[in-house]
Nucleic acid binder design. Structure first.
Lengths: 256, 256
DNA sequence: AATGCCAAAACTGTATACATGATCGTCGAT
DNA sequence: ATCGACGATCATGTATACAGTTTTGGCATT
């Protein structure tokens, strides 16, 4: 249930590559590895006992997902999405979420409702246990599952990537305990709207939800009209903090 | 102008990798390499005088773009998109093209019109010269350029990938000379609609255009209600043709 | 104390080697 | 003549070596 079963079939995934990929992904999304942290191929390889060849493949994949920055001849680092990039991601996501809703309404079956509700309840349970990371992951799962119900495999793949990117943005810009909000789960309304079968209304609900998520994610970051300089400086501050923290991965590395 | 300048900045692109990537991409899209053709790492490496290490990176990239199929322990092949996959691609593309139009209308500047018209005229010129491949490429360029005008870098990236995938679909399912149609360029109407500034109308035009493109691309392929078997068989026919044609790449290889 | 410079250390870029698993043709049995 | 098993060949999976570039830390200079 933790592994993305979709990828297991396609792609060129030696299992070992997937393990490292998933582990790093988790670590980054849970902020165990802060943005800017260096990710040297040797060290990662040592941890997962694989050669640089494989590590390289892992990093390439993470880069294509936007989780790591990698410029030629330079050590890869955990990505630090720009505010602008963040807004771009949400913009695309909003568009595709709408499309998902339209398609799901069109092919709606009662079983869908049960499936989504089950997932939602898991999320709520995790939140009650104050397991923020788990709740966050499940919230993402919900949207990916919804995309799968659209019946469009490519759409599911894209949504999956977008959700991941959003999670990183949330980790970078969001308040520390974003996932611990009390009050009703917003996904309830989405399910209700889907059941109602009114496509226009359902997309409206989804757009509203996306608005909430984005607002929550970018809270604290300058609201709208910030100048480029302030943006740059604040990002550098983050980078320095992360960089000072230590030589890359060391915490994990020398756990002896 | 032939190189996608967007990728030059990001990613992890040793120039040599990009060269091979671009070459293979072109070859596949122009049907110089037919779907199903095997792409052994050794042979490709020999052609571009690079080691399998680099070839592997190239193939991985092509795979992520949907241009090659690569299953573990099996020689990679030129992709043969399913009809279902094809429809998925167009579905996602339609959704994102609409979003692009909305955004471009919102940030419209007169210079945009000139830029798009220039590109369009190049396309027409190529078509008059009966250079189908060039015209096709430029038609794709048009949509990518439009996406760039949206100001959303991620959206541009996605659109770029979707256009590529559509080109492959066109190459596989479309009639041999799809790009040689006479009569007005449909892109004219799009530009006009954008100039008018009416978002709703402009998206409607774009949707219509996408409908046309999809219809043109999937013409000949069973129109709607085909059973899976017929689908499979027709695809096998194509595959066998391609496979018989020769040992992989040979045409390109021994062009002496 | 701050600035620049240089050598050592740290990493990446790429090729190559070796092991293992697929593929294809041939040969024997039915 | 067809079908099925077996081995040679081909191609991939992964590790490792070596070359070249960037980064780092210290030392001399201002």
């Amino acid at each position: 249930m933790l592994i993305t079963q979709s990828e297991a079939l396609m792609s060129r995934p030696s299992p070992r590559i997937d393990i490292a990929h998933e582990a790093l992904k988790q670590a980054i999304l849970e902020r165990a590895l802060l943005p800017g942290t260096k990710l040297p191929e040797d060290e990662i390889g040592a941890h997962f006992s694989m050669s640089r060849t494989l590590v390289r493949a892992v990093l390439a994949k993470l880069q294509s997902e936007g989780l790591v920055d990698a410029r030629p001849k330079r050590t890869a680092t955990v990505a630090q999405p720009t505010l602008e990039e963040a807004r771009d991601v949400f913009e695309v996501r909003r568009a595709l979420e709408s499309e998902v809703v339209r398609l799901v309404v069109k092919r709606w079956k009662p079983a869908f409702g049960a499936e989504l509700e089950g997932l939602m309840r898991e999320e709520d349970a995790a939140r009650l246990r104050h397991e923020g990371h788990v709740a966050g992951r499940l919230a993402g799962e919900f949207h990916i599952r919804l995309a799968k119900l659209s019946g469009n495999v490519l759409l599911e793949r894209y949504m999956s990537e977008l959700v991941t990117r959003c999670s990183l943005i949330l980790a970078v810009y969001g308040a520390p305990h974003v996932h611990d909000h009390t009050g009703g789960n917003e996904h309830t309304e989405i399910i209700a709207a889907l059941r109602a079968g009114d496509a226009a209304h359902a997309t409206a609900i989804m757009e509203a939800h996306m608005g909430d998520v984005e607002r929550r994610a970018l809270r604290g970051a300058d609201p709208a009209g910030a100048d480029a300089l302030g943006d740059v400086l604040s990002r550098y501050a983050g980078a320095i903090t992360a960089r000072d923290t230590a030589t890359p991965l060391r915490k994990v590395a020398k756990r002896k």
